[in-house]
Amino acid sequence: MSTNTSPRAAPSGAADFRDVATAHAPFRYGRLALWLIVTIVVVDFGWIVANNENFGWPVVAQYFFDPTVLSGLYVSLGLTVIAMILGVALGLIIAIMRMSDDRLASGFASLFIWFFRGTPLLVQLIFWYNMSTLFPNLSIAIPFGPTLASWDTNSVITPMTAAIVGLALNEAAYMAEIIRGGLLSVERGQAETAQAFGMTKARALRRIIIPQAMRSIVPPTGNQLISMIKATSLVSVIAMADLLYSVQSIYNRTFEIVPMLMVAVIWYLLITSVLNIGQSYIEAYYGRSDRRNATAAAKPAVVTEEASH
């Protein structure tokens, strides 16, 4: 290989003046002014909000850890977690069906996505909640034949089940499209290689395709999770005691509408902030093979190169 050509080989000593190592960045007064203006505006806005008695900060503090609020918070969190897990699992199945060569599977998946993405979540929730008006009894039966078991719809579809089913099915439709996009983003040669090595389709998906698809699935899924937390507030319309419903039940009594909404807002912000941090860790995990000098690079990467020529 070529021995280092000295950078000092350039003509004349004047070159030292132009060595970029000696350069300095000019002071930018414009940036400083902008920083000052923005800081003043933000601090002033904070000051106004903090000193506006209508926000009722003492009331916010008083009710922040109120048992009603906390139990509403648990309901919101629980609903989010369950609906999200069901939504992702079902979404994965729908995505795989949608990509399948089988016309029946892909047709069903398209129909599912078309329906659940195409109607408002609020309407879907109300429908599930009022299932008993459409089908008073739920039964397991042989088509056109005898009934094997039967239940009263109202005992099966409680506000809780209506909320879970409604949120999960809606989420599944969106997740299916996100996951499908992720699977499509993996280079075609990868599936082919797994195939050539005798892997079954299921194994190829699990070991080769999905881990690579995760990098493009995780960021939009984080979005979905945050939307889901806020979407759980919709279940208050079907008398499900979530975070929003419980602060509403308090301000219906005390008429402290804004302070109680501030309690809910701060809780929602706290949860989404925690989730953002979690998401960045997950993204770093799935991006680990991309960092050029990760883990094993402790040994110099170029040593073996020259041997071959």
Binding site: S289, T304, A307
Partner: peptide, 15 residues
């Protein structure tokens, strides 16, 4: 194949 010391590397780190 002469790559004993590369077993812990990821493919992108190789030529």
């Amino acid at each position: 194949v002469g790559l004993s010391e590369k077993e812990g590397n990821y493919p992108r780190q190789l030529s």
